[in-house]
Every structure is written in structure tokens, then in C-alpha cells.
């Protein structure tokens, strides 16, 4: 497939970087030659993998996913001062988008989800350090 037209084409002279106003440097330290970790914390990887797995299993199409996720990102960025930083906030919105989809499909019951969150918390608090954490039957 060949590309369509680019969204913009700039031929004008470069602007001075100092013209950025208060937006600040985007990436003075954001272009590492050595890559950052693909995921900062395990739950970022887990929610990403869940979304990919559920889509591949046919529970939703990726275009539908991108559309919903994009809308939620836009809504969140409009109310967060300074905008989203693409880190924890991004994955939290990914998680809520996934939960929202699962609720719509009557797969996830919000009350059960909340109850299980509390059960997992309790399991961590009551499991001695070093032992595997499991939900009580």
C-alpha cells in the first residue's frame, strides 16, 4: 500500500527553537540512543497485552479500539494541566478504555471488578513477603 498525502508539508524556513514559549523543550532528553524500557512497570505491559490479546481473540477490532482510545485520550488531555505525558497517564486511560469496552459487552460487572480489586489488595496485605500472592478461594 502506498502512502496517501502527508498531513502537512512544510517548506518554510525553520523557526527558532526559542519561539516555543512556555511549551518547553519536548525532547532534549527524550531521544536516548539506548532505548528506554518498553514498559516502565509490569501493569503497563499487562494492560497492553490484554488489549492485544482480546482484540486478536475477536472481542473488538483494532480500529474500533483506536477510535475509543483516541477519544478517551483527547478527553483526558483536555482536562489535565500540561497534557498527558505518555507514561502512566497513557496506560491508565488504556486500562479504563479496555474496562469500558468490557462493560459495554457485559463481560465485566463493575461491582465485581471493585470487589476483586479489594480482594487482591487484601491478598497482598495478608501474604507474607516472598510468598506467591493468590486470591483466596
Amino acid at each position: 500500500m502506498k502512502p496517501e498525502k502527508p498531513i502537512i508539508e512544510q517548506i518554510s524556513k525553520p523557526k527558532n527553537a526559542a519561539d516555543n514559549g512556555d511549551e518547553g523543550a519536548l525532547a532534549a532528553d527524550s531521544a536516548p540512543l539506548v532505548p528506554d524500557q518498553p514498559f516502565d512497570v509490569p501493569w503497563h505491559a499487562e494492560v497492553f497485552a490484554l488489549a492485544v490479546h482480546l482484540s486478536e481473540a475477536g472481542h473488538f477490532g483494532w480500529q474500533d479500539w483506536a477510535s475509543r482510545f483516541g477519544k478517551n485520550l483527547a478527553a483526558a488531555s483536555s482536562i489535565k494541566a500540561g497534557g498527558l505525558n505518555g507514561g502512566n497517564d497513557y496506560y491508565q486511560i488504556m486500562l479504563e478504555t479496555l474496562i469500558g469496552l468490557m462493560k459495554e459487552k457485559d463481560i465485566v460487572d463493575p461491582e465485581l471488578l471493585s470487589a476483586l480489586e479489594l480482594q487482591w489488595r487484601e491478598a497482598y496485605i495478608t501474604t507474607p513477603h516472598g510468598e506467591p500472592v493468590n486470591l483466596r478461594a
Partner: peptide, 28 residues
């Protein structure tokens, strides 16, 4: 660290979601 380190709120929420999906047989 007498008990297991408590994950963050969203991490617990992911675990809860995974639990539901696994119990329903929707994820491997």
C-alpha cells in the same frame, strides 16, 4: 516488608480485570 509489596491502584485493577477475564475463559 512483612507482607508482599502492595501494587499500585491501577495494577490491582488490572489484576481484577484479568481475574474476571480468566474466570470467564476469555483470555489465556
Amino acid at each position: 516488608h512483612a507482607h508482599a509489596l502492595l501494587p499500585s491502584e491501577p495494577a490491582l485493577r488490572v489484576k481484577a480485570l484479568e481475574t474476571i477475564l480468566t474466570r470467564k475463559g476469555l483470555i489465556d
